[in-house]
Design a protein around this nucleic acid. Sequence first.
DNA 1: GAGGGCGTGGAACAAAGGTA
DNA 2: TACCTTTGTTCCACGCCCTC
Length: 295
Amino acid sequence: MDRLNLNHLKYFYAVAQYDTVTMAAEKLFVTPQTVSAQLGLLEDAIGYSLFDRVGKRLHLNKEGQIALRYTEDIFRSYRELISELNNLESTQEIILSIGILDSIPKTLSSQIFEAVYAEFSNVRIVTHETDFEQLLADLAINKLDMILSDRPLPPNVSVKAYSRRLISSDFTFFATAKLAAKLRARFPLSLDGQTFLMPGERSAQFTHVFSWLSQMDIRPHILGEFDDTELTKLLGQSGHGVFCAPSIFSESIQRQYRVKEVGKTGDIHEDYYSITPSRQSKHQIVDHIHAMFDD
DNA sequence: GAGGGCGTGGAACAAAGGTA
DNA sequence: TACCTTTGTTCCACGCCCTC
């Protein structure tokens, strides 16, 4: 036997569940000989014993625990496959799970969501916001269909996925109208010593802005570092300091938060990426999102 | 049609657990 | 402790189904 099939895994899974070949055979409506033989073939094929034979009982050993975890994944994928195929033939809703870094502007996220809703009437979007490493881990186990990120997929990770640059932008500094008018004339030198709401340290924006300020030899007074871009804007709106955001969203930020432009960085840019699994079952939706950003 | 994979029934044996 | 029962394993023969 050199080819595994779902039957081998089915028998293995049953024995793992019931601890005895007889019980597994009864549940599967086959004879114990069949279960025992197929279990033996599976163990031969993978080259490891999966159970410790303790008396009449079969207990999963270390290798068996690993095999069980993968077997459950395979069965879960199988169920998802059937569900996905069923979805093609029905109007059942499609759940699109998107992981979003805190540093991603909500304006960008909402533009993407609006485009999806406009094109696909049966899509429900579920968002998850956490750190980059956790999002990648969730993508690896198919908990996510896409990540919206401020950095591409790192080359040293084993996740089977690819990243695509969606949009690129330089930065604009914003402040309340009164403060912006005061700082605009001598920008960027006017930022020196000025109260500043810094992007969170884990964000790519932090690196860009920090390096830009260092190059200019400007040392603002950092009031705080904030992962959440919305929180930054709200504090800026309340007059707690200057904050920066991608220039492409300048118009909507000024309108929504009643702030004004102080100045642009011009020569530094931030890119935003989508990261999607190599095997993408919802490729129609993902392709539609990517098409939004085609030049 | 040949060959292989899979499943069944039957038989034999070993080992462990239950019970008198 | 001896005996019985239960369970797991192995072997064999056979049939069914699928692929080549």
